[in-house]
Design a protein around this nucleic acid. Structure first.
Lengths: 186, 186
DNA sequence: TCGTCAAACTTTAGCTCTGAAATCTTCTGG
DNA sequence: CCAGAAGATTTCAGAGCTAAAGTTTGACGA
């Protein structure tokens, strides 16, 4: 999910086929089929991000805030986590988490209170409003996603799912430094 | 392509199946198959972005800079564009473009000179170094992408390509406001 | 009972990237 | 020759983030 909201001007973009043709022109080694798949997948993901952001804007929250809501929902009832734990799960520093929580408390998305059993700790808890926002975001996303897959029907969905899963497995099973290591690096 | 470089801590993440199971638990209306496809696609795209960023780091450039290099390469030889035109193509304000170009000139990725035939205009031109960096980024990306698709062979690539293209078409052909419009919005 | 240390969060300072608006330079048309 | 438009840059301000210092609270050995 992308993070920016203000769009100063919409960027011009080539179609996939044109884009791949340009890459071939400037870098003849590319495999057109591979490049087409990769470009299409990236672009679909980007468009999805834009759509989600627009939906969140309707709800009056940012994608950064949505990530926190999601982490709390995923944690399950009673939807509580400490700032440090949230920071770990979101890949942020504790400082950034503090600021993000500040905003979210002000917007009544979460509450912040000290843990009375161990007063060093702080408990961040989802509010009713915060949970409602998350549920509504899921409702909107479900509508969007069903429309996105409208032309992919029946068995095709199984096929698509399996192919994507294989791509993901290929990335995840490689050690991070192994993937994309170029033997012919300048 | 994501924009951040410094990773303060790697976020914890559930597997796709677990993630979908959690969503089902908290929001029973989700279609597990749709959600699996969407989550997998998003995650593959995210991993790709991380991989590209790592490669660019090796080259010593940021993804913001890479976008400028790409725009110039796409424009074709002699790889020249004005700041205003670049800003339009990247979806930035001219001010942001000026700053970005400042950095890139300092790093010998592009040159900035006034157009002698119309001295209001400025010409940004790719340097040899800038072009080399872009070519090298393509070389690394090609290796990575081929590995990414290693388990998808022969006819499967055609199928995957077609399915993704259908998804993209579904997004692009909808008017922006139509996609994901929720009739049951609170 | 203390004193010291560690843990968890917050605060502060500084950085990068961006947009809006003002400014500067140069060209063009009457 | 001047008014105004076009194009780029400068200035100012805001959002987010990190690193490092600071604060509060709990744990533990002497």
């Amino acid at each position: 999910m992308t993070t920016d909201k203000p769009a100063p001007a919409k960027p011009r973009e080539l179609g996939i086929a044109e884009q791949v043709a340009v890459y071939q022109r400037e870098f003849p080694l590319v495999d057109p089929q591979v490049e087409t798949i990769v470009q299409t997948l990236s672009r679909v993901a980007r468009r999805m991000g834009v759509a989600y952001d627009r939906q969140l804007t309707v709800l009056g929250i940012t994608s950064a805030e949505w990530e926190v809501l999601k982490a709390l929902v995923v944690a399950g009832s009673p939807y509580r986590l400490g700032p440090g734990e949230l920071a770990k799960r979101l890949g942020l520093t504790p400082a950034a988490m503090t600021h993000r929580i500040d905003r979210m408390v002000a917007e009544d998305l979460v509450t912040r209170e000290r843990d009375e059993s161990n007063r060093v700790r702080v408990i961040i808890e989802l509010t009713e409003n915060g949970r409602d926002k998350w549920l509504e975001s899921m409702r909107m996303a479900a509508v969007f996603e069903e429309e996105l897959l409208q032309d992919i029907v029946g068995e095709e969905r199984t096929v698509l799912s399996a192919l994507l899963a294989r791509m993901l497995r290929r990335i995840e099973e490689s050690r991070p430094d192994a993937l994309g290591r170029t033997a012919d690096l300048a």
